[in-house]
Design a protein around this nucleic acid. Structure first.
Length: 266
DNA sequence: AATGGGACCTGCGCGC
DNA sequence: TGCGCGCAGGTCCCAT
């Protein structure tokens, strides 16, 4: 599911819906997603704690609890958090005060739930690059110039910049009119400036729309996000480019399907 | 350093 | 209708 805008959407909705609620119980329907050898450590550490704070780092959601621990949630490809949940597709359900349940659904079971003492010391977190909104244009341009790799895989490199995934890398490069196979270091000063601004614009607009629902992603309420309607190239192989009407192309880059308009993106 | 492949998983849509 | 294949918002690990 989720790139930065989808996780940010969930984060904001969780703040409204579950902040201050107590976790009364935890039901593990599929232990695969709980990354603890002893599942009872996970359950016992969560039980009877209160949800104090919700944060996001890159694509990672962090729920801080009253006992000082945090629940780190990585959605990977098909993870969902739904509240109030109905339990039907739930891999793990959290029974909250007030009588409702927060469901973690995950069709492909690639998602990860971890209860940790200090989320900042997670290796995954320490390896994350800066948030797009914390970065200055100058820093972005300098970092891009230092890398010879192709620009699209670089944008998706979470150690380089955190939160951008396959959809938003494709959409940002389309809007910035940059071919995804271009060398990062080979971009002009102007292109780097435009790309940086475009990334932030697209992420902001996607957040405003509640994210992109393609297959599995839904907002906390279970409603789809609206931004997929605005996709210009992602998932549009063979269809006419909205600008020049020539067909959108799909190639594989860094092992990922990559959509772009060969005519508009030079 | 960069790139390619496979692994982890389930399940959808497509062509035959 | 049924089957096999490719593909999927991510990340990690290994080989070259």
């Amino acid at each position: 599911m989720p790139e930065l805008p989808e996780v940010e959407t969930i984060k904001r909705e969780l703040e409204k819906a579950v902040l201050g609620k107590k976790i009364l119980g935890v039901i593990i329907n599929n232990p695969c997603v709980v990354k603890h050898r002893r599942k009872e450590d996970f359950v016992n550490g969560l039980k009877n704690t209160t949800i104090r704070n919700i944060l996001r780092r890159g694509k990672l959601l962090i729920i801080e609890l009253s006992n000082g621990k945090s629940l780190a949630v990585h959605f990977k490809m098909t993870g969902q958090l739904v509240y109030p949940g109905d339990g039907k597709k739930s891999r793990v359900s959290f029974k909250l005060s007030g009588g409702r349940t927060l469901d973690f659904n995950d069709r492909r079971l690639l998602g990860e739930l971890r209860l940790v003492d200090d989320w900042r010391s997670l290796e995954f977190v320490k390896a994350l690059g800066p948030e797009p909104f914390d970065l200055t244009a100058d820093k972005f341009k300098e970092a891009v110039s230092a890398r010879k790799t192709k620009i699209k895989p670089l944008l998706m490199d979470q150690g380089f910049i955190s939160g951008i995934g396959n959809i938003y890398a494709a959409e940002a490069l389309f809007k910035a009119k940059i071919n995804p196979e271009r060398s990062a270091a080979g971009l002009s000063d102007k292109e780097k400036t435009v790309l940086f601004k475009t990334i932030k614009d697209i992420l902001n607009e996607a957040i405003r729309c509640g994210g992109s629902s393609i297959d599995q992603y839904v907002q906390l309420s279970g409603e789809p996000g609206d931004y997929a309607k605005q996709h210009k190239v992602y998932g549009r192989a063979g269809k006419a480019c909205f600008i020049c009407k020539s067909p959108v192309k799909r190639i594989t880059l860094g092992g990922r399907g990559t959509y772009f308009c060969p005519k508009c993106q030079k």
